[in-house]
Design a protein around this nucleic acid. Structure first.
Lengths: 240, 240, 240, 240
DNA sequence: GCGTAAGCGAGACGGTACGTCAGGTCTTTTG
DNA sequence: CAAAAGACCTGACGTACCGTCTCGCTTACGC
């Protein structure tokens, strides 16, 4: 676990009454509870303070606003995600997919995650906080999974580090995105069958993509297409 | 374009002064503009009304709340998505991926979409509205793409309708989810390279999955799929 | 009864559909009913229209505003006041006092009267309407009472018209004011005893005032007025 | 001046930031000013708050509604009424009459008083507030005037306390009612002449009423009238 | 008998104010 | 000095009425 999040990062100063550490825990728990019961838009600072048995001032002394408070409150949920060692890459991946799906079924996670991402489209500081508190935790799983699979010999070592990074990013977007989309937009559960099919799609897609060598298989980005028609129009009509 | 959305669905009754149709257009335009300038959390009904040159009550007479208003305002953006006929399935898919990515770069779309999805986790009526106004429009593209590819002979007809529906759902969650995640969470652009790699991953993954020979249910990625070539030599390395 | 009030005074134009006369009655009745149930400040035009089974426009076509509508609605109540002939001035006066008191016990009268008077402090047109529709009806009783008493010989003819007018005004203010104040401010009922004592106070006070011999202008109450008897022996102790 | 009114009576609790006392004064002053400029029906809470340089919430924290605020704002005006010692009862009474008349010429007093009384016909709490804040202040003058006149020997001590109370009430209703009626309904000024005539009427009327002894003077409620005609019908026709 | 001008119910319209609520800040007393 | 309590200002909320304005009728008069 990198950089522990903590309420405010820096505040210390060694004099005066020290901040109560129970208060922190109580506030975060109260925030999660309020999130479950009320949802994002109905959650209020005053309500959280009351549930935590704490004054509103104490909240503001530790978190600059509702958004960062919620990020921190929700972040701990993502600590629960574990990369198990089930012996094969597909099994490991499928496990993570199901864990992630289960996490997003929980109301406090599902509500908070999207709301906070929505806010972050306008607020860079918030985006950074989300990245360190949540996204990096998930990405770490992808990296760890790759390494373990390489050790097992399931996948070859990456030809160069840049390609590896690109692959990691793609896998991460595909897996996390698909789970989020299924859970929140399609509103369907991430059950065993779906998790297995997603895992399969991603792993075969990725392996085939990397393997093709001389096969007729897929794209050959180096060799320009003979007559693929106008490419630019494609970009152009994307806006029409 | 099926089922036109309309502000309130049902309200008519032939007596009394009819609702001004210009007001509708002005309000939706004002909503999009406010969304760009202020973002979701700063957008207020009063502000939208003022921009539209309309009374606040007129807004509330037509939309029960900010959420549904924003859904309707943003929904038209998704009408722009087109499935072009570029001659091959990968090219068509890649085009849609890029269109969708470009759409989500637009601030009014990105902000609104996530916020509204977040709210929908607590509000079934809102979820339904999102589904009919936005999601179904996108899903339609997947269905149409499948059909066209079948006509071209790029993919075989589905063995049974249930399997086809499951595949459609999976593809939809994977593609839409990945684009959304990359744009909003990873905050990276959907450029030509990424779009191509995503397309390739999904299409090869899917094809391989359907032809798994006698292989074990869970793919064995070590043994590369024997002949997954049939997508024809496609060599587009189009644009930037 | 002089000048019938009528909704709008002038509206004529002999062509077109004539205004429904039932509507007038229904509206005024609805206004009184709403006044009883809701009080002045909660009474709304829309509510009156609904009770009367009439469109809001119909109200506005006939009365310029709530104030004048209420004045007209309440004015008819004051038509009920009668000057009976009970044979003596005190008995007649006492009767009127009690009638007026009874009228002001009725919620629609009490609420409306004061509210409308309050509004009239800022609105001369409204003040005129009140005067013609309500006040003059009451003042007429005072004038009639004087004349009858003179015919009976109970009081001497006025030395000059100006003095008579001054007396009329004073009596009117004292009697009406006292009844209103007792009913609305003191919130005590106008019962038989109180009515008799008020009547007596006014009549003796007035008679003595007119006959002050050579006494100082400002009465010297220590020296009881020498002969203020001429009101005749009236011994009614009627009453509840 | 007993029982200070205060905004809300009870609220304290010794912890937390105390309510600003300047705010109270500023709000009441702003209310009176707004009343003068706008009149009762145009006075709004928001406007008062703005004039007082205070938030709307601060008003609502202290007064439950416009009505009670206005009562308190206007009440202080009635503190100005003084019972001077001019040496004789008539002179003292006349002075109070003129003071009261002058008070009711002031727009903030005249508008507010009637409006608030009108509202009170539906609201017992408001009626109580008016009584303690305004009416009792005036009544005190009547009581004090009686006592002083007795000390001077101008009027005899009351035969029994009940009679004294009844007299006080009657005088109060007559004097206050007459002044109010002349000012607000008749819309005539309370000038020296009118004040003198009212004073005289009340004092002589009252003295004579009490004095009559064996004189033929006024009512002899003990001795039933010889032929006073039907009393009951009087009560009956009061309702017709 | 027929056109036409006004009345009529309905209900949308641009407004204003409502009374409440939440956000953050600030000022007390208590620990 | 921090914490709790709670007053404070700000500003948006969603609602209720206002008085006006179309609508599509209906109704009586006067040609």
């Amino acid at each position: 676990m990198p950089t522990r999040t903590g309420p405010e990062g820096m505040h210390q100063g060694r004099t005066g009454r020290p901040r109560s550490p129970e208060a922190d825990a109580a506030i975060l728990a109260a925030t999660r509870q309020a999130l479950v019961e009320l949802g994002w838009s109905k959650l209020t600072m005053g309500d959280v303070a009351a549930r935590a048995g704490v004054a509103k001032t104490t909240l503001y002394r530790r978190w600059p606003s509702r958004n960062e408070l919620v990020v921190d409150a929700v972040a701990v949920l993502f600590d629960e995600l574990r990369l198990p060692d089930l012996g094969s890459l597909p099994a490991d991946v499928e496990s993570v997919v199901r864990q992630f799906g289960a996490l997003l079924e929980r109301p406090e996670a599902k509500t908070a995650l999207m709301a906070v991402i929505a806010e972050a489209t306008r607020d860079d500081a918030l985006r950074r906080r989300i990245r360190t508190a949540i996204v990096d935790r998930q990405k770490h799983l992808v990296v760890a999974g790759r390494e373990r699979a390489q050790e097992r010999g399931e996948i070859p070592p990456p030809p160069d580090p840049a390609a590896a990074a690109r692959d990691t990013d793609l896998i991460f977007d595909v897996v996390a995105g698909a789970v989020v989309h299924r859970t929140l937009v399609s509103a369907e559960p991430v059950d065993g069958d779906w998790a297995r099919r997603l895992t399969q799609l991603v792993l075969t897609g990725l392996t085939a993509q990397r393997a093709p060598a001389g096969a007729a298989a897929t794209a050959r980005p180096t060799a320009p297409a003979p007559a693929q028609g106008p490419q630019e129009p494609r970009a152009a009509d994307a806006g029409s």
